[in-house]
Design a protein around this nucleic acid. Structure first.
Lengths: 246, 246
DNA sequence: GCGACGTTTCGGCCACGGCCGAAGCATCCC
DNA sequence: GGGATGCTTCGGCCGTGGCCGAAACGTCGC
């Protein structure tokens, strides 16, 4: 399988990661959020023109995907494969005393449900996003998500104020790459509003000293009844193949 | 988890991989075997002096581990973490339709026993290497292996011709990093001779259309009786904490 | 419309690093 | 010892590419 890949192709990608400014940009994007060129410039510690050049290269090589939004330009990691490369580099750089990560109960809880900035992440977030999509309330395509008219009615009926913050630059509905599951979940004002409402209804509760969340009994019942959440949402979604063999 | 790693550290590693010559060297080393500077030069398609410079950088950054052996200098991947980075890059470069690998029964057979070039690899190879070491017939240290006088007697009694090919440049006894188990097994002329003899005795048999091997009933009995192979050799091997890792 | 702001293009500077040939060590073999 | 072989060091050439300031472009808000 590796025989079809030449060192030159590898070097091309690695060289893009081999610049401190670009590496810092990619690192900043590992959170899964899309960031603007300006934010990335600040993360990288270089000027706006320099940043622009770097971003053009990264997008040209399909490492990043740009999204225009008004006078801003958002960039996000283009694929799971690229995220894997950066992840492997993070591990290799942290190297030294090879840290062991036994994926304990804490990790499991985080994978199940947690906050990501101000919105929901983890398997629960994905299941919720899937449920909304299955019912035609939210549509997702390659690089974004939006609320359908039916979705607007439903969400306002659920108690969300979709107009709140409408004047801010923040998009109403946006996808955010879920770091543990490697699939996009819902962010933006919709994601924030959802999490806020779920807390308000006591459908989710914060666990102490962690970003993990607990889905309450009423929450589980409510999400299944009103959102059509699949009862098996806790199950592993996909098992990406492990290390290769020579 | 990623917060303690700066983009600069990542860039440092990635930059080393970002040169076509170096990338081709690392790709060649992904087979798990240690290769000489000359072999790597040929793989990379650059001159010996250039290769030397590259290898010095890679070894200096702990991506490769050098091993002197006479007038040769062998290099191998320094750690599992580095191999993971290269692996992720291979996947990302092959990108497009992300191949799925379901780790089926074929894979399991390969992990159990297979050929690696002309010698044995997989758990059987490790168990055999351990057995030889436990009985003081072969000694291994940080970067190599050699046959003890007692081992020489035993192996010749088993039917190996240790003098065959003695005039060639190939080392008698060498370790080779097992790619599926991430521990060294025995290669060199000893490894080749062992596999040859095991086939001759019908202790192992080749499976069709794969590099996997099957240990026959007589083979299993013979290896337990004569080599002291542990009967539980098929079990998952636990990575020893000490190890030559990193 | 106008100014403010975010981003990109242009031009020029400069350093880093890859490349090789020649020469220098080290090792093996006879 | 002498000669082959494998690898490294040295010196010099040269292209690639990162960086910035100035200025242009596009969008937003008034």
């Amino acid at each position: 399988m590796s025989s079809i890949v030449s060192g030159n192709q590898i070097a091309e990608i690695a060289a893009l990661l081999g610049d401190p400014a670009r590496a810092n940009m990619l690192l900043a994007l590992m959170g899964g959020r899309a960031l603007t060129a300006g934010e990335l410039a600040r993360h990288a510690g270089v000027s706006a023109p320099t940043t622009s050049g770097h971003l053009a290269k990264l997008a040209g090589a399909r490492l990043l995907t740009p999204m225009r939004q008004g006078r801003h330009r958002y960039y996000r990691l283009a694929s799971r494969e690229i995220a894997e490369v950066v992840h492997a580099l993070i591990v290799a750089a942290g190297a030294g005393p090879a840290r062991h990560r036994p994926a304990g109960p804490r990790d499991a809880a985080l994978r199940l449900a947690r906050t990501c900035y101000d919105h929901l992440a983890g398997r629960l977030a994905l299941a919720l996003a899937d449920a909304l999509q299955d019912r035609g309330l939210v549509m997702q395509d390659d690089g974004g998500a939006w609320i359908t008219p039916a979705g607007r009615v439903f969400l306002e009926g659920f108690g969300l104020d979709l107009e709140a913050g409408a004047s801010s630059r923040r998009p109403l509905c946006r996808t955010c790459l879920d770091w543990s599951e490697r699939r996009p979940h819902l962010a933006g004002r919709l994601g924030a509003g959802l999490l806020h409402r779920l807390r308000e209804l006591d459908w989710v509760a914060d666990l102490p000293d962690t970003r993990a969340l607990r889905l309450t009994r009423s929450g589980e019942r409510g999400l299944v009844e009103r959102f059509g959440l699949r009862p098996d949402w806790r199950c592993e979604v996909v098992a990406p193949g492990g290390g290769g063999e020579g």
